[in-house]
């Protein structure tokens, strides 16, 4: 797992992809920071992270960050190397996922500059800021797991990125639908609705249940990814 994690992380930074993504992410974040905080002289940086635009950007970026993660190996044949070496599939998937997660964590860590700037203007450090970051990281980590899953479905990266983005989009808007339905279906839809638990964090509420929810969501997604790869070993010639 360690070998795969290291190699994946390196390959993000060997190619321009990580730099471009981090740069654009910070650009969008900084524009929002300027509009919400600096220009309007408002201390609370949480609005950046709760803003729909920023969440949409996160969806796109996590899809792009993960699109090649498994699809590329299948396309260029290096999957054979991974699957025939003495490493199990779980370590391959988790190793790759963690590499994408680290890139995301780097992006997120840099955004901590925004609250730091507001502190310079005498803003107070609040629990909500930390809570908001924990929520944002869990949300992003969940998005990435969806991306990894989508990447396992195809060897075409464009298909992977679109699949991932559409899945995330559906998971976002689905909470609105479940309100009209009720019953078991609503419960299922609520479970896959990633955003419905997100706001709690920004209110400074560290709900243990929500943390467990996100972690189990990630677990399920990675588990499905492993199953997809396993299954293909049986069906292909």
């Amino acid at each position: 797992m360690n070998a795969i994690f290291k190699k994946e992380l390196k390959s993000y930074f060997y190619s321009p992809i990580a730099y471009v993504l981090i740069g654009l992410f910070l650009l969008v974040g900084s524009i929002l920071f300027f509009v919400f905080n600096l220009a309007s002289a408002y201390a609370d940086t949480r609005w950046i992270f709760m803003n729909g635009i920023f969440i949409l950007v996160l969806m796109i970026f996590s899809s792009v960050l993960t699109m090649r993660i498994l699809a590329e190996d299948r396309k260029n044949g290096s999957e054979v190397l991974l699957l025939t070496s003495p490493v199990n599939i779980v370590s391959i998937v988790v190793g790759k996922y963690l590499a994408a997660l680290v890139v995301f964590l780097i992006m997120t860590a840099i955004t901590f500059v925004y609250p730091l700037i507001t502190f310079a203007f005498d803003a107070q450090f609040t629990a909500e800021i930390i809570g908001g970051y924990i929520g944002f990281i869990l949300l992003g980590a969940s998005f990435l797991s969806v991306g990894v899953f989508a990447s396992s479905l195809t060897e075409n990266q464009v298909v992977a990125v679109i699949t991932s983005f559409v899945m995330l989009l559906i998971m976002w808007i689905i909470s609105g639908v479940s309100g009209y339905l009720g019953g078991t279906l609503a419960k299922v839809l609520n479970w896959i609705s990633l955003l419905s638990r997100y706001d709690d964090f920004n209110r400074g509420i560290l709900n243990f249940g929500s943390i467990v929810y996100y972690l189990s969501f990630i677990f399920v997604m990675l588990f499905l990814t492993v199953r997809v790869i396993e299954k293909r070993r049986w069906s292909q010639g």
Binding site: G77, S78, P86
Partner: peptide, 22 residues
Amino acid sequence: QPPLYLDMTVYDYLDFVSDLKS
């Protein structure tokens, strides 16, 4: 089809394979 990572150097690639095979 040799299972290569085209973006890696020969040495880095073999180094990765060594780690993979522990």
